[in-house]
Amino acid sequence: MSQIGLLFYLGMGGSILVSQGIIPLRPSHARPAGAVRHAVLMIASCALATPVYSFVYQRILSTLKLESLAPFLVALAYFSVVFLMKSATSLLKGAKKNGKDSASAGSSIYPSPPLVAYGCILAASAYGGSGWNLFAAGASAALGFLVASTVLEDIMDRLELEAVPAPFHGLPARFLSAGLMALAFSGLDMSLYARIG
């Protein structure tokens, strides 16, 4: 299984968790338009976190022989970027709204796209390699997230018309569908990876 395939699964699983409210997000973020915004945020924050991480890793951690702290550094870079992006967004929005709806703006203390962490930290396993891994990680997690929020939702809508046994309603049906999709994707992933690798 390739790293890209793995991230695809994580993005997909993450989307299920968001849609079920297990990863707490505002409801607007779980809608299809929100999913696209999420995917863009994932790629953007990975792209922004990459240079910060690469610079500090090469200049500080490598020099001080503290390479094992790389995951900590990745998390720090990720959180900083996400909070900066969030602050910038709320500043821009704040200028428009001018104090209106202030309760909802400060309601969530979670970083806006928590799934980006999946991509960033997964890529941290390759911290010895290219910094571009972080960007590729964000992109593939975003793809998985998008696929799950569109295809999986269609499957779930279709399943509502079928006589699904009661114990499988809701989360089990979702995981079952995701598992079968992942099984199909793993075949594709293996054949592609074998050709590329």
Partner: peptide, 22 residues
């Protein structure tokens, strides 16, 4: 053993636990 297997096992385990509870 594949990642998909984990999702399938989780779904079946979840449904089984729900059935027992009901």
């Amino acid at each position: 053993a594949h990642p998909a297997g984990a999702l399938l096992t989780l779904a079946i385990g979840f449904a089984f636990a729900r059935h027992i509870r009901s």
